[in-house]
Amino acid sequence: MTEEIIIAGFGGQGVLSMGKILAYSGIMQEQEVSWMPSYGPEMRGGTANVTVILSDNRVSSPVLQSYDTAILLNQQSVDKFESMVKPGGLMIYDPNGITRHPERDDIRIFQVEAAAEAARIKSPITFNMVVLGAFIRIKPVVDLENVIKGLRKSLPERHHHLIPKNEEAIKRGMEIVKEARLTA
């Protein structure tokens, strides 16, 4: 198994930390992992993205031009990465603020209304965990149990009291994710 993932959105949405938790989850599942962020001028332009690779084998290139899964959290990211999903691959996006929806019919596209859900459970900062839940529901490359272990490793100890809240958000994401209906 090798899963090549791009996660992209605005800076502050928790894109990089979501990637880090996913990478830690992979380690807990005894996978090889890599986490390659955009850094520098790109990041300072307001968008952030990270490439995460989980694999049963040694990871080769940490930089890629096509992905098995794209998790896209703003319009710019949908515009930039939609074409880079491998045919037959997966796209998950939050329709919040999206005016031009994805159009490809050769990939699987799922929606998760993560911003709305995180607001509903009165925990906007767990937005990225709602998205993560959606991903592991559609592609169970890591077990929920290992994601929780990953969270424990990734969060500093002083934030460990937040883990139940994050777990709740992940489970909400698993429940609310749905296949997107393309409108022609």
Partner: peptide, 10 residues
């Protein structure tokens, strides 16, 4: 280089 320096791995 910046790639190996900035990336995270196990």
């Amino acid at each position: 280089d910046g790639l190996i320096g900035q990336m995270m791995e196990k």
